[in-house]
Design a protein around this nucleic acid. Structure first.
Length: 429
RNA sequence: GGAGAGGUAUCGAAGCGGUCAUAACGGGGCUGACUCGAAAUCAGUUUGUGGGAAACCACACGAGGGUUCGAAUCCCUCCCUCUCCGCCA
């Protein structure tokens, strides 16, 4: 969501940005919206003048009535009535134009950061840096659900009977491991100065449209029947939504929060063989971090945020890399985004375990989140979000990287306090 | 689920067809005075959004409609919040 004034004053920047994102079909929308805006301002001026006149005459009628000059009052009424139809027509046109403008503005992509690599789709994302040695052991690493089954740690059959494909029962040590990771990640972020928060797991539609594009909404969000409520796809939704319609005191910035929630996603469409098991599911749990900050600080915060995830995974000895999202793969609301990917010794490649995004002022504009500046003027803050860890998917990386040849799984030092002191998990079968 | 009350700026709250929406009154914030400094006190200042170079204009009293020359105020529909009762982790 861009500022309309910005579009009006910088049409070439907006168009080049659209080309950079390979959305050329949206190019005509820029001139279209500028023309609509011009007409809208003209119509608005006319309507404003008519309304100003009506207000003036109406006020005088009140005075005339008070002075009991009824004849003059009647004459004034006639005058207002003569212009009523013209005003009504202007107002209809205003409404129509506003709607058209809003619709276009919702589809124009946010201006990407100059540092974002230009590319058509996810195949052109760019590796930034690797952390830790991606080891391939000389024994075979089974599929993650097979590892879990050795520990009697997963029951997908029952899950399918109860809820269908895309759900799981985690059992025993594997379930405990899942909870341990969440607890550890929570404390990890608290130690880095973030405020822990447990948010609502359902949100209203106006919050949904504020935090994501329509395309994403349709593909992701579960709606509660008969109510204006949606299950959150990530706690980012309720956490950024927390600030809807607020004017925030500048001295309270930045807000740095870490939240826990289950996440619900439709995951529409078919997915590949590598996305079975607990990789892509309708319900999972996640520790998230969000930041609301001054515009000038968002770039620095962006780098701090993804670094937290890298550090967390490294503290559990999982090799990771950062992958910069290219222009064509970047969601329309985002200014810049980096995925954190974990090493899979089985697939001998990295796979996504987290995503860090700088939304610029796009979410703030949609949600009407403002900051009262020192000079008394309000401005839009920037919003950022990043995955701390999403345990089900993280467990895949965890099990594959910590599996020993004898079938046991090492528990990293940092997780042991959360696992009752165990240093190793021994298979049950 | 039943009954009741209510939604007005940063907060509490008055207004209940025109002379109180540049929103009374109070709190908070900011500025100044007093003070070595602070508290207290006193004075001033402080809604948002859009249009305009500016003067200024328009819009917004939960949302949307209607009545009217004119609606915070009257009518209709919907949403939300609170209190009590019921039910229940």
């Amino acid at each position: 969501m861009l500022d309309l004034r910005f579009v009006r004053e910088n049409p070439e920047i907006v168009k080049q940005n659209i080309r950079n994102k390979f959305q050329d079909q949206k190019l005509p929308l820029v001139d279209e919206v500028i023309a609509l805006d011009e007409e809208n301002r003209r119509v608005k001026k006319e309507a404003d003048d008519l309304r100003a006149n009506r207000n003036k005459v109406s006020k005088s009628i009140g005075m005339l009535m008070g002075q009991k000059k009824f004849d003059e009052a009647e004459a004034a009424k006639k005058l207002v009535n003569e212009q009523a139809e013209k005003l009504a027509e202007c107002e209809r046109r205003e409404e129509e134009l506003n709607e058209k403008i809003k619709k276009i503005m919702m589809t124009l992509p946010n201006i990407i950061d100059p540092s974002v690599p230009i590319g058509k789709n996810d195949s052109e994302n760019v590796e930034v840096q690797r952390y830790g040695e991606p080891v391939v052991p000389d024994f075979e690493i089974p599929y993650h659900t097979d590892i879990m089954e050795r520990f009697c740690g997963i029951d997908l059959d029952s899950a399918r009977r109860v809820a269908g494909n895309g759900f799981y029962y985690l059992m025993g040590d594997i379930a405990r491991l899942h909870s341990s990771v969440i607890s550890y990640a929570r404390d990890f972020m608290i130690n880095r100065g973030f405020t822990y928060c447990i948010p609502p797991f359902m949100i209203r539609s106006d919050v949904v449209t504020g935090v994501m594009s329509f395309a994403e909404m349709d593909a992701m969000m579960y709606k509660i029947e008969g109510e204006d409520l949606y299950l959150i796809g990530t706690s980012e939704h309720s956490m950024i939504g927390k600030f809807i319609d607020q004017i925030l005191p500048e001295n309270e910035l930045p807000y740095t929060l870490t939240s826990y929630s289950p996440c619900f996603r439709k995951e529409k469409g078919a997915h590949g063989i590598e996305e079975r098991g607990v990789y892509r599911i309708h319900q999972f749990e996640k520790q998230e971090m969000i930041v609301v900050c001054k515009p000038e600080d968002s770039k620095a915060w962006f780098d701090k945020l993804w670094q937290n995830t890298v550090d967390l995974f490294r503290s559990m000895d999982i090799p990771v890399r950062t992958l910069e999202c290219c222009s064509g793969d970047l969601a329309d609301l985002k200014v810049k985004s980096v995925d954190v990917e974990a090493w899979s010794p089985r697939q001998k490649k990295y796979f996504e375990v987290g995503s860090c995004s700088n939304l610029g002022d796009a979410q703030a504009r949609r949600l009407r989140i403002r900051v009262k500046g020192e000079d008394g003027k309000n401005y839009l803050p920037h919003t950022l979000n990043n995955t701390v860890v999403a345990p089900p998917r993280m467990l895949i990386a965890f099990l594959e990287n910590n599996l020993c040849e004898d079938g046991t799984v090492k528990i990293p030092e940092v997780l042991r306090p959360y696992m009752g002191g165990q240093s190793v998990l021994v298979p049950k079968k």
